[in-house]
Nucleic acid binder design. Structure first.
Lengths: 116, 116
DNA sequence: CCATCTAATCGTCAAATTACGATGATTCAG
DNA sequence: CTGAATCATCGTAATTTGACGATTAGATGG
């Protein structure tokens, strides 16, 4: 059992809501959807997103405890999610605090929703 | 310019609407979302889905004409989409007629929508 | 039957993905 | 300053992906 300092509440305040005016169709939208889908194309990454959503606040290495993967592997998955813009990481002392990027999820919903 | 016989209208009649009772959370849902996302994790496959949606009816080798890819590559992408359950292919004489599997798209929307 | 057309499959290659342990960088406690 | 803790990065190996040309399998038309 590893002890850790209590989680900081909301080290990643949700950014201001803002409408996304980019189109949901066309070549760019297709590449964008493919990119977001690729980030979610691995069960571990879907799980990370779910954990971050559930905990609402941001966790850091707790993710490693929740996943049956090595720390370096989790770090790689986090990098992929961050690269796609789905999460954000904020340095908080020796830890890094990850949280969902809400507008990226909204964008994903919009793009998937446009597949009608 | 390649001439082809006129497209058959609706060789893939949409199946009966039916509510999907499977949960949108939990391990299975995560694997399912990852699987669907993986199918859409390539721009060519997103494009194929969009084309099939736009044409509403099902096209076959016309997809090859619309994509800057070799026939065998398109066939592979179609196989991936079919494997994920997103499209269906029906043999129509010497051709194969592909169309969207609407309930799979609904399922995808539900799973993505559950990422709240 | 035979030639043709369509689409799937095979074989191949380069590149990307996924996983891990080891190593580095950074921060904090003492 | 030192050591411990946390996390990123590196190096590596196994697997998968994506692309293509060539070939195979079926169906149609003559």
């Amino acid at each position: 059992m590893i002890q850790r300092a209590p989680a900081v509440t909301s080290c990643c305040p949700p950014p201001r809501d803002q409408a996304d005016l980019r189109p949901v169709e066309g070549d760019e939208a297709e590449v964008e959807l493919a990119s977001l889908a690729k980030a979610l194309s691995h069960p571990a990454r879907v799980r990370i997103v779910r954990i971050l959503l559930r905990k609402d606040a941001c966790v850091c290495g707790d993710l490693v405890d929740e996943l049956p993967l090595a720390q370096s592997t989790v770090s790689q998955h986090l990098k992929v999610l961050k690269g796609a813009g789905l999460i954000r990481g904020e340095v908080d002392g020796p830890r890094v605090c990850y949280c969902i990027e809400p507008h990226a999820l909204r964008r994903l919903r919009a793009l998937v929703g446009a597949l009608s």
